[in-house]
Design a protein around this nucleic acid. Structure first.
Lengths: 207, 207
DNA sequence: CACCAATCTTACCGGCGGTAAGATATCACA
DNA sequence: TGTGATATCTTACCGCCGGTAAGATTGGTG
């Protein structure tokens, strides 16, 4: 039995993602994770600091994964939206902490950077859409000049349609993961849900 | 100092809603709640059983409140969607647990009944819409006949547009509460967010 | 080979959720 | 009116969790 585990950090993240996917963020116990991996409960401290650190790292990893998926989907709103939903279904543990500022450390540089990447991809899609015919849609009133606190994004404010599309994808993902869709008979497997999500998102009509 | 508190159950729920709104469901401590209300930590047990019971009651109360709001909004999809978002902003503590089956007791009769009411209002709106001109939109393939487990709803399956509208409202509410919208300069006060949400939902075009 | 930094362990603390058993107030009913 | 049943709350206890401090083991670097 080696004193050094070897890949404790990655293994902890993977195990955390699995547990959060199964039992939710509140069902996660660092001690249980450590037990499963055969280390004492203080071993994770060195890599993540505390429990919030684990969830923060998980959220950041999720944002990197999502940004990659969205990039691969290209600039098609429909496919990007479907990819968004699919990501949530494929990585429910990550998704469950990515939009939960109460669970993570919002000051983490890793998280801020990863989140910024997702935001850039989303806004870049919005820009591409706006400059390719949808320009007549009008934009939202600008915020009081500049973003609020986290540093203004380099892109223009999100136009209403982009917000609508993002919200629709995010809402479908959330509702699917909560079981609200399967309770309505709208599909239980990821493939079914993805198909239903595509059918819904198709009703979005870019201006 | 009276031995009986008098309104411990309601006070506990209100305090729980406040704490969850401020610190999230994982930041809730029954002992802290009991301390704040001047009772010992086992007093809530009689009313709610355990922590899950408190969150279940909170979720049920939230569903009743939401169903009321949606009913008041009438059958207009736009106003219903805005009301949905507004409800989440007005009752963030309730909303945070209403779609979290990992936190509540899904077998609770009170919760099932309250959730069913919300679902009925949503589906009734969808029905009203479908029978008033949108009937040409086509429906989703029916589920393998009958709902899955919680008993099939008495109404037809949700058409794609209704799913889209619900998802959009739900997504806007979730994103707003997560701070994702304010980070983009899309508004920080409930009124601003509501205005942005209406602008987005207005881009939904019923068939 | 000797030192150093990274990694993991042992030992400890307070707080939380949960359970069992008992005390006290309220209410129904004689 | 008063008395017993019931609802409500308390005291005492348990194990688990997250977090901290201090020390041991390992791998790398001069």
């Amino acid at each position: 039995m080696a004193y050094h585990h070897g890949s404790l950090k990655e293994d902890l993240l993977a195990a955390a993602a699995r547990v959060v996917a199964e039992r939710g963020p509140s069902g996660l116990s660092l001690r249980e994770l450590a037990r499963d991996l055969g280390v004492t409960h203080t071993a994770p401290r060195h890599h993540f600091g505390d429990k919030q650190g684990v969830l923060t790292a998980l959220a950041a990893q999720g944002h990197r994964l999502l940004a990659g998926r969205l990039s691969s989907a290209g600039s098609d709103f429909l496919e990007a939206g479907v990819a968004y939903v699919r990501f949530a279904l494929d990585h429910p543990g990550h998704f469950a902490v990515m939009f939960r500022p109460d669970l993570v450390n919002d000051d983490s540089d890793e998280l801020k950077q990863a989140r910024s990447r997702t935001r850039s991809v989303l806004l870049a899609g919005a820009e591409a859409y706006a400059s390719s015919g949808g320009a007549a849609s009008g934009r939202l009133k600008n915020a009081p000049s500049g973003g609020t606190s986290t540093g203004a994004p380099p892109l223009a404010d999100m136009p209403p349609f982009a917000l609508l599309a993002w919200s629709a994808a995010h809402g479908m993902a959330s509702l699917a993961l909560s079981g609200a869709l399967s309770a309505l008979g709208l599909g239980s497997t990821p493939d079914e849900v993805t198909r239903v999500a595509r059918a819904g998102l198709q009703r979005l009509t870019p201006p």
